[in-house]
Design a protein around this nucleic acid. Sequence first.
DNA 1: TCTGGGGTCCTAGGACCC
DNA 2: TCTGGGGTCCTAGGACCC
Length: 433
Amino acid sequence: MYALADCNNFFVSCERVFNPDLIGQPVVVLSNNDGCAISRSNEAKALGIPMGCPAFQIKNYTSENVIMLSARHVLYRDISNRIMRILGEIAIKLEVYSVDEAFFQLPYDDEYQNHELLSEIVKKIFKFVGVPVSIGFASTRTLAKIASHVAKKDPTNLDRVKGLTNQDEIDSVLSKTKIDDIWGIGRRLNAKLLSCGVHYASEFIRLPKSYVQKIGNINLVRTQQELIGHDCVSVNPVNIAHKSIMNSRTFGHVINKKREICDAVLTFAQSCSTQLRQEKSAALTVTVFVYGDRFRQDLPFYSNSCSIRMQSHTSSTIEIVRHAIQAFHIIYKEGYYYRKAGVMVTDIKPANEIQLDIFNAEKEVKHKKLMSAVDIINNRYGTKQVILAPSLTKGEWAPQQNHHNLQSKTMRFYSGMSPRHTPHLNHISNDNE
DNA sequence: TCTGGGGTCCTAGGACCC
DNA sequence: TCTGGGGTCCTAGGACCC
Protein backbone atom coordinates (compact mmCIF):
# COMPACT_ATOMS: atom_id res chain seq x y z
CA MET A 1 0.00 0.00 0.00
CA TYR A 2 1.25 3.44 -0.95
CA ALA A 3 0.13 6.60 0.76
CA LEU A 4 0.39 10.11 -0.57
CA ALA A 5 0.37 13.01 1.88
CA ASP A 6 -0.45 16.31 0.23
CA CYS A 7 -0.50 19.67 2.01
CA ASN A 8 -3.60 21.72 1.29
CA ASN A 9 -2.95 25.08 -0.41
CA PHE A 10 0.55 24.77 0.97
CA PHE A 11 2.10 28.23 0.60
CA VAL A 12 -1.09 29.95 1.75
CA SER A 13 -1.34 27.55 4.70
CA CYS A 14 2.26 28.42 5.66
CA GLU A 15 1.46 32.13 5.60
CA ARG A 16 -1.58 31.47 7.78
CA VAL A 17 0.58 29.76 10.38
CA PHE A 18 2.32 33.09 10.86
CA ASN A 19 -0.69 35.32 10.43
CA PRO A 20 -3.98 33.80 11.63
CA ASP A 21 -5.83 36.89 10.39
CA LEU A 22 -5.53 35.34 6.93
CA ILE A 23 -7.75 32.40 7.91
CA GLY A 24 -11.13 32.57 6.17
CA GLN A 25 -9.88 35.24 3.72
CA PRO A 26 -9.26 34.86 -0.01
CA VAL A 27 -5.46 34.70 -0.15
CA VAL A 28 -3.04 34.03 -2.99
CA VAL A 29 0.72 33.65 -2.83
CA LEU A 30 2.49 35.11 -5.85
CA SER A 31 5.39 33.75 -7.84
CA ASN A 32 8.76 35.42 -7.84
CA ASN A 33 8.52 38.94 -9.18
CA ASP A 34 4.93 39.06 -7.88
CA GLY A 35 4.03 37.68 -11.30
CA CYS A 36 1.20 35.20 -10.92
CA ALA A 37 -0.73 33.07 -8.43
CA ILE A 38 1.10 29.92 -7.36
CA SER A 39 -0.98 29.05 -4.31
CA ARG A 40 -4.61 29.90 -3.51
CA SER A 41 -6.74 29.54 -0.43
CA ASN A 42 -10.09 27.76 -0.83
CA GLU A 43 -11.79 31.16 -0.66
CA ALA A 44 -9.63 32.41 -3.56
CA LYS A 45 -10.38 29.23 -5.56
CA ALA A 46 -14.09 29.75 -4.92
CA LEU A 47 -13.82 33.21 -6.51
CA GLY A 48 -12.64 31.49 -9.69
CA ILE A 49 -9.03 32.68 -9.60
CA PRO A 50 -7.10 30.07 -11.61
CA MET A 51 -3.64 28.72 -10.87
CA GLY A 52 -1.04 30.83 -12.67
CA CYS A 53 -3.38 33.80 -12.93
CA PRO A 54 -1.31 36.97 -13.52
CA ALA A 55 -1.43 39.19 -10.43
CA PHE A 56 -2.79 42.17 -12.31
CA GLN A 57 -5.75 40.15 -13.59
CA ILE A 58 -6.82 38.88 -10.18
CA LYS A 59 -9.03 41.91 -9.60
CA ASN A 60 -10.92 41.01 -12.80
CA TYR A 61 -12.31 37.95 -11.06
CA THR A 62 -13.93 39.64 -8.13
CA SER A 63 -14.82 42.89 -6.48
CA GLU A 64 -13.68 41.35 -3.20
CA ASN A 65 -10.34 42.30 -1.75
CA VAL A 66 -8.04 39.37 -2.40
CA ILE A 67 -4.92 39.34 -0.22
CA MET A 68 -1.81 38.89 -2.36
CA LEU A 69 1.48 37.86 -0.78
CA SER A 70 5.02 37.63 -2.15
CA ALA A 71 6.39 34.10 -1.85
CA ARG A 72 8.87 33.21 0.91
CA HIS A 73 10.28 29.92 -0.22
CA VAL A 74 12.85 29.62 2.57
CA LEU A 75 10.02 29.66 5.09
CA TYR A 76 7.98 27.09 3.15
CA ARG A 77 10.99 24.79 2.90
CA ASP A 78 11.48 24.95 6.64
CA ILE A 79 7.82 24.12 7.37
CA SER A 80 7.96 21.33 4.78
CA ASN A 81 10.95 19.80 6.59
CA ARG A 82 9.00 19.74 9.86
CA ILE A 83 6.06 17.99 8.20
CA MET A 84 8.32 15.42 6.53
CA ARG A 85 9.95 14.67 9.87
CA ILE A 86 6.57 13.90 11.43
CA LEU A 87 5.58 11.70 8.46
CA GLY A 88 8.94 9.97 8.83
CA GLU A 89 7.87 8.73 12.28
CA ILE A 90 5.35 6.33 10.73
CA ALA A 91 6.34 6.12 7.09
CA ILE A 92 8.12 3.19 5.52
CA LYS A 93 10.39 4.39 2.69
CA LEU A 94 9.36 8.03 2.74
CA GLU A 95 9.77 9.57 -0.74
CA VAL A 96 9.66 13.35 -0.56
CA TYR A 97 8.19 14.14 -3.94
CA SER A 98 7.95 17.92 -3.73
CA VAL A 99 7.92 20.65 -1.12
CA ASP A 100 4.33 19.79 -0.21
CA GLU A 101 3.96 16.10 -1.09
CA ALA A 102 5.42 12.79 -0.03
CA PHE A 103 4.75 9.16 -0.86
CA PHE A 104 5.36 6.39 1.64
CA GLN A 105 4.40 2.81 2.32
CA LEU A 106 2.08 1.67 5.06
CA PRO A 107 2.75 -0.85 7.81
CA TYR A 108 -0.57 -2.73 7.89
CA ASP A 109 -2.47 -4.97 5.50
CA ASP A 110 -5.70 -3.92 7.05
CA GLU A 111 -7.39 -0.82 5.62
CA TYR A 112 -9.00 0.12 8.90
CA GLN A 113 -5.70 0.09 10.82
CA ASN A 114 -3.96 2.15 8.12
CA HIS A 115 -6.81 4.61 8.12
CA GLU A 116 -6.60 5.06 11.88
CA LEU A 117 -2.84 5.58 11.75
CA LEU A 118 -3.06 8.19 8.99
CA SER A 119 -5.91 9.98 10.68
CA GLU A 120 -3.73 10.38 13.77
CA ILE A 121 -0.79 11.70 11.76
CA VAL A 122 -2.97 14.30 10.00
CA LYS A 123 -4.09 15.53 13.41
CA LYS A 124 -0.55 15.56 14.72
CA ILE A 125 0.77 17.62 11.80
CA PHE A 126 -2.01 20.15 12.22
CA LYS A 127 -1.39 20.36 15.96
CA PHE A 128 2.38 20.77 15.82
CA VAL A 129 2.90 22.57 12.51
CA GLY A 130 -0.48 24.13 11.75
CA VAL A 131 -0.75 23.03 8.13
CA PRO A 132 -3.75 20.96 6.94
CA VAL A 133 -2.71 17.79 5.12
CA SER A 134 -4.77 15.26 3.13
CA ILE A 135 -3.69 11.66 2.71
CA GLY A 136 -4.82 9.08 0.19
CA PHE A 137 -3.72 5.46 0.05
CA ALA A 138 -4.04 2.65 -2.51
CA SER A 139 -2.08 -0.14 -4.18
CA THR A 140 -0.21 2.20 -6.58
CA ARG A 141 1.09 5.74 -6.34
CA THR A 142 -1.19 6.97 -9.13
CA LEU A 143 -4.28 5.62 -7.36
CA ALA A 144 -3.03 7.01 -4.03
CA LYS A 145 -2.80 10.38 -5.69
CA ILE A 146 -6.43 10.15 -6.80
CA ALA A 147 -7.40 9.03 -3.31
CA SER A 148 -5.73 12.06 -1.75
CA HIS A 149 -7.62 14.24 -4.19
CA VAL A 150 -10.87 12.64 -3.05
CA ALA A 151 -9.84 13.12 0.59
CA LYS A 152 -9.22 16.80 -0.05
CA LYS A 153 -12.36 17.57 -2.04
CA ASP A 154 -14.97 15.61 -0.12
CA PRO A 155 -16.49 17.93 2.52
CA THR A 156 -17.97 14.99 4.40
CA ASN A 157 -14.53 13.50 4.84
CA LEU A 158 -13.63 15.09 8.15
CA ASP A 159 -10.36 13.33 8.88
CA ARG A 160 -8.94 14.07 5.40
CA VAL A 161 -7.86 10.46 4.85
CA LYS A 162 -9.13 8.26 2.03
CA GLY A 163 -8.25 4.68 1.20
CA LEU A 164 -9.00 3.25 -2.24
CA THR A 165 -8.68 -0.49 -1.77
CA ASN A 166 -12.03 -1.95 -2.70
CA GLN A 167 -12.33 -2.59 -6.45
CA ASP A 168 -15.98 -1.52 -6.67
CA GLU A 169 -15.11 1.75 -5.02
CA ILE A 170 -12.06 2.25 -7.27
CA ASP A 171 -14.30 1.72 -10.32
CA SER A 172 -16.81 4.20 -8.99
CA VAL A 173 -14.15 6.86 -8.30
CA LEU A 174 -12.48 6.34 -11.69
CA SER A 175 -15.81 6.81 -13.45
CA LYS A 176 -15.98 10.29 -11.90
CA THR A 177 -12.30 11.19 -12.36
CA LYS A 178 -11.65 13.39 -15.39
CA ILE A 179 -8.56 12.38 -17.32
CA ASP A 180 -6.73 15.64 -16.69
CA ASP A 181 -7.00 14.94 -12.95
CA ILE A 182 -4.82 11.88 -13.44
CA TRP A 183 -1.18 12.21 -12.39
CA GLY A 184 0.84 11.99 -15.62
CA ILE A 185 -1.77 13.43 -17.98
CA GLY A 186 -1.16 17.07 -18.72
CA ARG A 187 -2.61 19.63 -21.10
CA ARG A 188 -1.49 18.01 -24.36
CA LEU A 189 -2.39 14.42 -23.58
CA ASN A 190 -5.70 15.59 -22.16
CA ALA A 191 -6.52 17.29 -25.48
CA LYS A 192 -5.41 14.23 -27.43
CA LEU A 193 -7.46 11.84 -25.33
CA LEU A 194 -10.53 14.09 -25.44
CA SER A 195 -10.30 14.16 -29.22
CA CYS A 196 -10.39 10.35 -29.13
CA GLY A 197 -13.57 10.54 -27.07
CA VAL A 198 -11.95 9.61 -23.76
CA HIS A 199 -13.20 11.79 -20.91
CA TYR A 200 -12.95 9.76 -17.72
CA ALA A 201 -10.34 7.54 -16.10
CA SER A 202 -12.74 4.59 -16.36
CA GLU A 203 -12.74 4.99 -20.16
CA PHE A 204 -8.99 5.47 -20.29
CA ILE A 205 -8.23 2.17 -18.52
CA ARG A 206 -10.29 0.26 -21.08
CA LEU A 207 -8.18 1.43 -24.05
CA PRO A 208 -5.89 -1.22 -25.59
CA LYS A 209 -2.30 -0.90 -24.44
CA SER A 210 -0.95 -0.51 -27.97
CA TYR A 211 -3.38 2.33 -28.65
CA VAL A 212 -2.32 4.12 -25.45
CA GLN A 213 1.32 3.74 -26.46
CA LYS A 214 0.50 5.26 -29.85
CA ILE A 215 -1.28 8.27 -28.35
CA GLY A 216 1.45 8.95 -25.82
CA ASN A 217 4.54 6.99 -24.96
CA ILE A 218 5.67 4.38 -22.48
CA ASN A 219 4.89 6.73 -19.60
CA LEU A 220 1.25 6.94 -20.57
CA VAL A 221 1.09 3.13 -20.69
CA ARG A 222 2.56 3.08 -17.17
CA THR A 223 -0.04 5.54 -15.97
CA GLN A 224 -2.77 3.30 -17.37
CA GLN A 225 -1.26 0.23 -15.72
CA GLU A 226 -1.10 2.05 -12.39
CA LEU A 227 -4.79 2.87 -12.57
CA ILE A 228 -5.50 -0.80 -13.18
CA GLY A 229 -3.49 -1.59 -10.07
CA HIS A 230 -0.07 -2.60 -11.40
CA ASP A 231 2.68 -0.78 -9.53
CA CYS A 232 5.07 0.54 -12.19
CA VAL A 233 5.78 4.23 -11.58
CA SER A 234 8.52 5.29 -9.22
CA VAL A 235 9.65 8.66 -7.99
CA ASN A 236 13.14 9.99 -7.60
CA PRO A 237 14.08 10.42 -3.98
CA VAL A 238 14.73 14.07 -3.29
CA ASN A 239 18.09 13.51 -1.66
CA ILE A 240 19.86 12.05 -4.69
CA ALA A 241 22.08 14.44 -6.59
CA HIS A 242 20.53 16.40 -9.43
CA LYS A 243 21.28 15.72 -13.08
CA SER A 244 20.99 19.39 -13.87
CA ILE A 245 20.92 22.53 -11.77
CA MET A 246 19.38 25.75 -12.98
CA ASN A 247 19.19 29.25 -11.62
CA SER A 248 17.23 31.92 -13.47
CA ARG A 249 15.08 34.95 -12.81
CA THR A 250 12.68 37.23 -14.59
CA PHE A 251 14.00 40.72 -13.98
CA GLY A 252 11.97 43.37 -12.20
CA HIS A 253 11.83 45.30 -15.49
CA VAL A 254 13.34 45.05 -18.98
CA ILE A 255 17.06 45.77 -19.16
CA ASN A 256 19.24 46.69 -22.12
CA LYS A 257 22.53 47.34 -20.38
CA LYS A 258 24.99 44.54 -21.02
CA ARG A 259 26.80 45.06 -17.72
CA GLU A 260 23.64 44.61 -15.68
CA ILE A 261 22.53 41.43 -17.41
CA CYS A 262 26.03 40.06 -17.13
CA ASP A 263 25.84 40.79 -13.41
CA ALA A 264 22.70 38.68 -13.17
CA VAL A 265 24.34 35.83 -15.11
CA LEU A 266 27.30 36.00 -12.77
CA THR A 267 25.05 35.70 -9.73
CA PHE A 268 23.18 32.73 -11.21
CA ALA A 269 26.43 30.98 -12.06
CA GLN A 270 27.67 31.44 -8.50
CA SER A 271 24.46 29.92 -7.11
CA CYS A 272 24.76 26.90 -9.42
CA SER A 273 28.36 26.37 -8.31
CA THR A 274 27.50 26.59 -4.62
CA GLN A 275 24.69 24.09 -5.05
CA LEU A 276 26.97 21.72 -6.94
CA ARG A 277 29.43 21.74 -4.04
CA GLN A 278 26.63 21.24 -1.52
CA GLU A 279 25.61 18.13 -3.44
CA LYS A 280 29.26 17.03 -3.73
CA SER A 281 28.91 17.06 -7.51
CA ALA A 282 30.70 18.59 -10.46
CA ALA A 283 29.43 19.63 -13.88
CA LEU A 284 30.96 19.55 -17.32
CA THR A 285 28.62 21.84 -19.27
CA VAL A 286 27.48 25.39 -18.56
CA THR A 287 24.50 26.82 -20.43
CA VAL A 288 23.46 30.46 -20.39
CA PHE A 289 20.21 31.78 -21.82
CA VAL A 290 18.76 35.24 -22.27
CA TYR A 291 15.16 36.04 -23.06
CA GLY A 292 13.33 39.17 -24.15
CA ASP A 293 9.88 40.23 -22.96
CA ARG A 294 7.32 38.10 -24.78
CA PHE A 295 4.48 40.39 -23.71
CA ARG A 296 5.92 43.64 -25.04
CA GLN A 297 4.63 44.13 -28.58
CA ASP A 298 6.53 47.40 -28.87
CA LEU A 299 9.98 45.82 -28.49
CA PRO A 300 11.74 43.47 -30.90
CA PHE A 301 12.00 40.03 -29.32
CA TYR A 302 15.22 38.09 -29.06
CA SER A 303 16.21 35.01 -27.13
CA ASN A 304 19.15 32.69 -27.35
CA SER A 305 21.20 30.20 -25.42
CA CYS A 306 24.74 28.93 -25.52
CA SER A 307 26.31 25.85 -23.95
CA ILE A 308 30.00 25.52 -23.29
CA ARG A 309 31.69 22.27 -22.42
CA MET A 310 34.49 22.93 -19.97
CA GLN A 311 37.84 21.16 -19.99
CA SER A 312 36.86 18.89 -17.13
CA HIS A 313 34.13 18.43 -14.54
CA THR A 314 34.25 21.14 -11.92
CA SER A 315 32.31 22.83 -9.14
CA SER A 316 34.66 25.79 -8.90
CA THR A 317 32.77 29.07 -8.89
CA ILE A 318 35.69 30.69 -10.69
CA GLU A 319 35.62 28.21 -13.59
CA ILE A 320 31.84 28.09 -13.92
CA VAL A 321 31.47 31.87 -13.75
CA ARG A 322 34.25 32.33 -16.29
CA HIS A 323 32.57 30.03 -18.80
CA ALA A 324 29.12 31.45 -18.11
CA ILE A 325 30.37 34.95 -18.90
CA GLN A 326 32.05 33.64 -22.04
CA ALA A 327 28.77 32.07 -23.16
CA PHE A 328 26.88 35.23 -22.31
CA HIS A 329 29.15 37.34 -24.51
CA ILE A 330 28.47 34.98 -27.40
CA ILE A 331 24.69 35.32 -27.26
CA TYR A 332 24.28 38.90 -26.07
CA LYS A 333 23.03 41.18 -28.84
CA GLU A 334 23.23 44.93 -28.56
CA GLY A 335 20.04 46.91 -29.07
CA TYR A 336 17.56 44.47 -27.52
CA TYR A 337 15.72 44.63 -24.22
CA TYR A 338 15.95 41.59 -21.95
CA ARG A 339 13.53 40.38 -19.32
CA LYS A 340 15.01 37.11 -18.17
CA ALA A 341 18.29 35.26 -17.98
CA GLY A 342 19.51 32.04 -16.48
CA VAL A 343 22.38 29.63 -16.02
CA MET A 344 22.18 25.86 -16.11
CA VAL A 345 24.87 23.31 -15.33
CA THR A 346 24.53 19.79 -16.76
CA ASP A 347 26.52 16.58 -17.32
CA ILE A 348 26.79 16.30 -13.57
CA LYS A 349 28.85 13.61 -11.85
CA PRO A 350 29.69 12.88 -8.22
CA ALA A 351 32.80 14.88 -7.34
CA ASN A 352 34.65 11.79 -6.15
CA GLU A 353 34.34 10.13 -9.57
CA ILE A 354 36.07 12.97 -11.38
CA GLN A 355 39.46 12.36 -12.91
CA LEU A 356 41.94 15.09 -12.23
CA ASP A 357 42.84 16.88 -15.46
CA ILE A 358 46.55 16.31 -15.86
CA PHE A 359 47.16 19.75 -17.41
CA ASN A 360 45.16 21.64 -14.81
CA ALA A 361 45.78 19.60 -11.68
CA GLU A 362 47.53 22.36 -9.81
CA LYS A 363 44.83 24.91 -10.54
CA GLU A 364 42.07 22.47 -9.60
CA VAL A 365 43.61 21.77 -6.22
CA LYS A 366 43.96 25.50 -5.55
CA HIS A 367 40.36 26.17 -6.53
CA LYS A 368 39.15 23.32 -4.38
CA LYS A 369 40.86 24.75 -1.30
CA LEU A 370 39.62 28.24 -2.03
CA MET A 371 36.04 27.10 -2.61
CA SER A 372 35.89 25.09 0.57
CA ALA A 373 37.12 28.12 2.51
CA VAL A 374 34.44 30.27 0.84
CA ASP A 375 31.75 27.71 1.67
CA ILE A 376 32.82 27.52 5.30
CA ILE A 377 32.65 31.31 5.68
CA ASN A 378 29.32 31.59 3.90
CA ASN A 379 27.81 28.76 5.91
CA ARG A 380 28.91 30.35 9.16
CA TYR A 381 28.17 34.02 8.51
CA GLY A 382 25.36 33.88 5.98
CA THR A 383 25.25 33.20 2.26
CA LYS A 384 26.98 35.67 -0.05
CA GLN A 385 29.41 37.01 2.52
CA VAL A 386 32.17 36.04 0.15
CA ILE A 387 31.39 36.42 -3.55
CA LEU A 388 33.34 37.10 -6.71
CA ALA A 389 34.38 40.74 -7.00
CA PRO A 390 32.76 41.45 -10.40
CA SER A 391 29.30 40.84 -8.91
CA LEU A 392 29.51 43.80 -6.54
CA THR A 393 27.09 45.94 -8.50
CA LYS A 394 23.70 47.32 -7.63
CA GLY A 395 21.59 44.45 -8.93
CA GLU A 396 19.27 46.44 -11.18
CA TRP A 397 17.74 43.20 -12.35
CA ALA A 398 16.44 42.13 -8.93
CA PRO A 399 12.86 40.87 -9.11
CA GLN A 400 10.06 42.82 -7.49
CA GLN A 401 8.54 41.63 -4.23
CA ASN A 402 6.12 44.18 -2.96
CA HIS A 403 3.52 42.15 -1.09
CA HIS A 404 4.73 41.36 2.40
CA ASN A 405 3.00 39.37 5.08
CA LEU A 406 3.89 41.74 7.92
CA GLN A 407 4.15 39.58 10.99
CA SER A 408 7.47 40.69 12.36
CA LYS A 409 6.92 39.29 15.85
CA THR A 410 6.34 35.75 14.74
CA MET A 411 9.04 36.08 12.13
CA ARG A 412 11.64 36.24 14.89
CA PHE A 413 11.25 32.50 15.23
CA TYR A 414 13.10 32.43 11.97
CA SER A 415 15.95 34.77 12.79
CA GLY A 416 18.81 34.64 10.36
CA MET A 417 16.53 33.91 7.46
CA SER A 418 15.99 36.44 4.73
CA PRO A 419 12.25 37.16 4.81
CA ARG A 420 12.21 38.65 1.36
CA HIS A 421 14.45 36.10 -0.24
CA THR A 422 16.04 38.62 -2.56
CA PRO A 423 19.60 37.42 -2.39
CA HIS A 424 21.06 40.34 -4.19
CA LEU A 425 19.76 42.89 -1.74
CA ASN A 426 21.47 40.99 1.04
CA HIS A 427 24.92 41.58 -0.16
CA ILE A 428 24.60 45.20 -1.17
CA SER A 429 23.39 46.01 2.32
CA ASN A 430 26.55 44.59 3.85
CA ASP A 431 29.18 47.27 3.81
CA ASN A 432 31.91 45.07 5.22
CA GLU A 433 32.14 42.91 2.15
C1' DT B 1 2.24 49.02 -15.62
C1' DC B 2 1.95 44.12 -14.16
C1' DT B 3 2.41 37.20 -16.91
C1' DG B 4 7.55 32.19 -12.08
C1' DG B 5 11.23 28.82 -11.34
C1' DG B 6 13.15 24.31 -11.34
C1' DG B 7 13.23 19.73 -12.50
C1' DT B 8 12.67 14.69 -15.10
C1' DC B 9 12.06 11.41 -18.87
C1' DC B 10 11.13 9.90 -23.74
C1' DT B 11 11.44 9.97 -28.75
C1' DA B 12 12.66 10.98 -33.45
C1' DG B 13 16.07 11.95 -36.42
C1' DG B 14 20.78 12.79 -37.76
C1' DA B 15 25.61 11.49 -37.71
C1' DC B 16 28.56 8.05 -37.58
C1' DC B 17 30.39 3.24 -37.28
C1' DC B 18 31.27 -1.53 -39.34
C1' DT C 1 22.23 0.31 -64.35
C1' DC C 2 22.88 -1.46 -59.87
C1' DT C 3 23.43 1.26 -53.76
C1' DG C 4 22.16 -3.34 -47.20
C1' DG C 5 21.59 -4.09 -42.59
C1' DG C 6 22.33 -3.16 -38.08
C1' DG C 7 24.14 -0.78 -34.47
C1' DT C 8 25.37 3.44 -31.06
C1' DC C 9 25.46 8.07 -29.57
C1' DC C 10 23.93 12.73 -29.40
C1' DT C 11 20.65 16.46 -29.55
C1' DA C 12 16.51 19.11 -29.89
C1' DG C 13 12.06 19.21 -28.82
C1' DG C 14 8.07 17.72 -26.51
C1' DA C 15 5.72 15.93 -22.75
C1' DC C 16 5.06 15.72 -17.81
C1' DC C 17 5.50 17.16 -12.61
C1' DC C 18 5.46 20.53 -8.51
